[in-house]
Write a protein that binds this DNA or RNA. Structure first.
Length: 604
RNA sequence: GCCCACGUAGCUCAGCCGGUAGAGCACACCCUUGGUAAGGGUGUGGCCAUGGGUUCAAUUCCCAUCGUGGGCUCCA
């Protein structure tokens, strides 16, 4: 009989899971090496929800191989192998891993550069150690579980094989990575697998097709989205709300062209540092024009269209700007990664004294706007300079300090927890990224608020200060939804396609029971449309039950059944998308109910 | 871009070892007028992603291209 709670021997559950997953990856490596004795092993760390191990094998793995390896792992686990830690010297390490070139490289790294086996800087003195379990010895720092007895064989599942470069560098050989997961109990594994199924069910790539929202077309080009009428309807609702909020929030809205002369992109520096992301130029009257990958240079031209006074700052200019970027074919992913997309871009141009207020204002605005769409959990990251390489960055030391301080102060003023990302800033300025957590607790990168110390210099942006002299303004670049495409994809997954009433492309569907009820259904539909609701009448020859099924599958929030009873009493019979049936209502009652749900941005 | 897999009707998918294709749904028409998730019948619909090669013969085998998926790297 196994111990009931295997985690109880460890500090806490997280510590146990971490060790468990790391140890299970070793067990997997043993199973793989038994099958391919000539195989080479790279690294195999624990990751969120599981583990992986990278191998260099004589042939590609198949799903059947995974089944076999998984079965072998269960057997190994049941053999009760201890995980034995041992510190060794270089000579022994070289000998143990004589036929393991990747491990030799890791040994080099540990000894020479003070790097650990994952390429991270080593804490403390360089020390070589191995963990042995069963027939497998790995260069490893641990920690591990004490014995394979602490791994529940019923809670192991290998998930997939994928290519991965040695050390993540595309110049290195491609290895085969096996992903797996392991939990404390079989039930936890079941729950995790069920979660993965739920993720699959909500996949926006499936839902946009089923709900007739958007499509992609091979003949039209990869990574280019086509918005159908229903998707278009939702997009317009998002945009209208966005525009209203921006005007209310003190922004002005601008429009800029889609292409610009090479000279502009030379000035902005994009041709130097962003050329790989840009499409080839087109010839216009002998001049090279580029399709825009970003909106910033255009907005700056608007700024420079005349002399600016400190009195008119801050300027907040927003734009739904469609940009095109070359993304490598392998990274395209539904709506979440496309080649043409519309950013909800804005630039805040202000004097240094205004920067703290402006940052706080944009932070509040972002979170509030996102909450309007039903997101209320966020993961915030502050990306700052790499303190060791100040020469890598545009802008002076003082500017970086002030900028960073304004970002930190804004986060602290709102008591928002955030993670500080050292060295993650782009070269032109520090930034705050806000990732939204969806209904399945996944984090999506949408919002970014970035300082730009590069463009004001390059374009020589100035304003006339109180002293009558020219000064350089601060420019903050921000996108809140990020891009409409990605945001829409996230929205679809968050709601699983069942949008809140205010965003539903069809809010109400009228279901006449028989043909003689169609006329009444149409007249009710007219009243509802008059009240501003989006309504359809299902006058097909389907039976009522089939009509209900179709409406459910289309995730229409409100179904109104109308038959003899409703016609006589001048009512409608309400069924909701959640399958509840509030029943008979007068048309006015229903209108009031629906309008309230819209106004409150409720799901139903 | 790289590694692996995949691409058959609008959609979801069958089609063993080569002999030019099938289901369900959707769609059209007919019958049915039915009270809270699929009523019945008939029918339309495929250059088997595209181009090349091997073969008497290719949807099936090989190569290339395009696209899609799982990853790596990168990113809104």
């Amino acid at each position: 009989m196994r111990r009931k709670k295997m985690s109880e021997n460890y500090e806490n559950r997280d510590e146990y899971l971490h060790r468990l997953r790391h140890s299970t990856s070793h067990v997997m490596a043993q199973a793989v090496l038994e099958k391919f004795p000539e195989g080479q092993v790279a690294i195999g760390p624990p990751i969120e929800d599981g583990f992986y191990y990278d191998f260099d094998l004589p042939r590609s793995l198949t799903p059947e191989d995974l089944d076999e390896i998984e079965a072998r792992m269960r057997a190994i686990v049941s053999e009760d192998h201890e995980f034995v830690y041992r510190e060794i010297d270089e000579e022994e390490a070289r000998r143990i891993f004589a036929n393991q070139p990747y491990k030799q490289e890791l040994i080099d790294g540990i000894l020479a550069a003070g790097m650990d086996e994952y390429g991270e800087p080593l804490v403390g003195a360089a020390r070589l150690s191995v963990y042995e379990s069963g027939s497998f010895v790995d260069l490893c720092r641990g920690p591990h579980v004490d014995n394979t007895r602490d791994i529940n064989p019923e809670a192991i599942k290998l998930l997939s094989v994928a290519g991965a470069y040695w050390r993540g560098d595309e110049r290195n050989p491609m290895l085969q990575r096996i992903y797996g997961t392991v939990w404390e109990t079989a039930q936890q594994l079941e729950e995790y697998l069920a979660w993965r199924e739920e993720v699959e069910k909500r996949d926006h790539r499936r839902l946009i097709k089923e709900l007739d929202l958007l499509s992609f077309h091979p003949e039209g080009g990869a990574g280019l989205a086509y918005w159908h009428p229903k998707g278009g309807r939702i997009r317009v609702l998002i945009e209208d709300y966005w525009r209203q909020r921006h005007y209310d929030g003190g922004y002005e809205i601008v429009f800029t062209p889609h292409i610009g002369r090479a000279e502009l992109w030379e000035t902005s520096g994009h041709l130097d540092f962003y050329r790989d992301g840009m499409y080839a130029p087109m010839d216009v009257d002998g001049q090279d024009y580029y399709i825009k990958p970003m909106n910033c240079p255009f907005q700056i031209l608007i700024y420079k269209s005349r002399l600016r006074s400190y009195r008119e700052l801050p300027l907040r200019w927003a734009e739904l700007g469609t940009v095109y970027r070359y993304e490598r074919s392998g990274v395209l992913h539904g709506l979440l990664r496309v080649r043409g997309f519309t950013q909800d871009d804005a630039h805040i141009i202000c004097i240094p004294e205004q920067i703290e207020d402006e940052i706080l204002r944009v932070l509040d605005f972002s979170l509030d706007l996102l909450r309007g769409f039903g997101f209320d959990e966020f993961k915030i990251e502050l990306s700052v300079r790499d303190p060791d390489k100040p020469e890598k960055y545009a802008g002076g030391d003082g500017m970086w300090k002030q900028a960073e301080q304004s970002l930190v102060r804004a986060l602290e003023a709102r008591a928002l927890p955030y993670e500080r990302m050292e060295g993650e800033a782009v070269f032109y300025g520090p930034k705050i990224d806000i990732k939204i957590r969806d209904a399945l607790k996944r984090a999506w990168q949408c919002t970014t608020i970035q300082f730009d110390f590069n463009l004001p210099e390059r374009f020589d942006m100035t304003y006339i200060g109180e002293d009558g002299k020219e000064h350089r303004p601060y420019v903050v670049h921000r996108a809140l939804l990020g891009s409409l495409e990605r945001f829409f994809g996230v929205l679809v997954e968050h709601y699983g396609g069942a949008f809140p009433v205010w965003l539903s492309p069809v809010q109400v569907i009228l279901i006449p029971i028989a043909d003689r009820h169609v006329e009444y259904a149409n007249s009710v539909a007219g009243q509802l449309r008059g009240a501003g609701l989006r309504v359809e009448v299902d006058d097909s020859s389907d039976r009522m039950r089939a009509k209900i099924r179709n409406a459910q599958l289309q995730k229409v929030p409100y179904m109104l059944i109308v038959g003899d009873r409703e016609m006589e009493s001048d009512q409608v019979n309400l069924r909701l998308r959640d399958e509840s049936v509030p029943g008979s209502k007068s048309v006015d009652e229903f209108i009031a109910l629906a309008q309230e749900a819209v106004a409150d941005k409720r799901v139903l």
